[in-house]
Design a binder for these strands. Structure first.
Lengths: 126, 126
DNA sequence: GAGATCAAGTCTATGTTCTAGACCTTGTCT
DNA sequence: AGACAAGGTCTAGAACATAGACTTGATCTC
């Protein structure tokens, strides 16, 4: 798309953009959920798996890897058989919980409003 | 997976869970980005498209539809030719910006730390 | 000593979702 | 007559996610 000034754009993301970089990572299906689960303390792979309930092992593994890479969580492997692996939040991860909790609180408060908006929309669509 | 109490799980999401319901919607690739763009005022489809830069029209259309359904944004169609469509935040959408800004501020502050974590991880992987 | 079992993954086949880009509409401008 | 405009939709192919089988090796059961 070539340059075109007919429609003024009040805002464009700088690219590469630090905000997008972060949002793209944690803004996926599972990261926020995992971080929230880990708030409650150190947990093993299968425990996280069951806490979330409907995540596939592959996605859990992949997402945990990314969170570890980005410094949100720590992974400890105990060389036993069968293997034991524990995940816990780092300081960075814990500090992230603060704004995340704001988001969760908002979700909790406004969930009803969202459901009503959906219902109204569905009714209008008939 | 059948019931199994060997590993205690400190936390399980109730299902269905209002928090998950909300997070699943806005926790996708594009919703947060679109809401942030719309913070700066009413915008037309193509303006949003260009502000974000690398979203496909189909995804933009789909995501806008979902945000409208959920009551985050308003869509106004002016029956002109060629058509003009404007999108703007609702009160609900604007109220969501508050916790979202917390998240963005966090991202801005900690972006460097995340990059360092990534670099450290990459170095260790060699 | 053959086989079952454990946790934490990986591998594979299948299904879902996303992307890029062509196409559609229908009044105005050339 | 033909080109162009904006806001989409449609389609084919690529990327990604899922479910479920498989792996590993020490221990426990038969």
């Amino acid at each position: 798309m070539e340059q075109d000034n007919l429609i003024p754009i009040p805002f464009v993301f700088e690219q590469p953009c630090p905000i997008r970089d972060v949002l793209d990572r944690i803004g996926d299906q599972w990261s926020l959920l995992i971080l929230q689960v880990l708030e409650h303390g150190t947990m093993r792979f299968s425990a996280i798996n069951r806490a979330i309930g409907d995540i596939s092992k592959q996605m859990l593994s992949k997402t945990l890897k990314r969170l570890e890479e980005d410094g949100f969580i720590w992974r400890t492997l105990y060389p036993e058989v069968p293997p034991r692996v524990e995940y816990e939040l780092t300081d960075l991860g814990r500090s992230f919980l603060v704004p995340m909790k704001g988001l969760i609180a908002w979700a909790d408060v406004h969930h009803r409003a969202i459901c009503e908006a959906r219902a109204k929309h569905a009714a209008r669509a008939e």
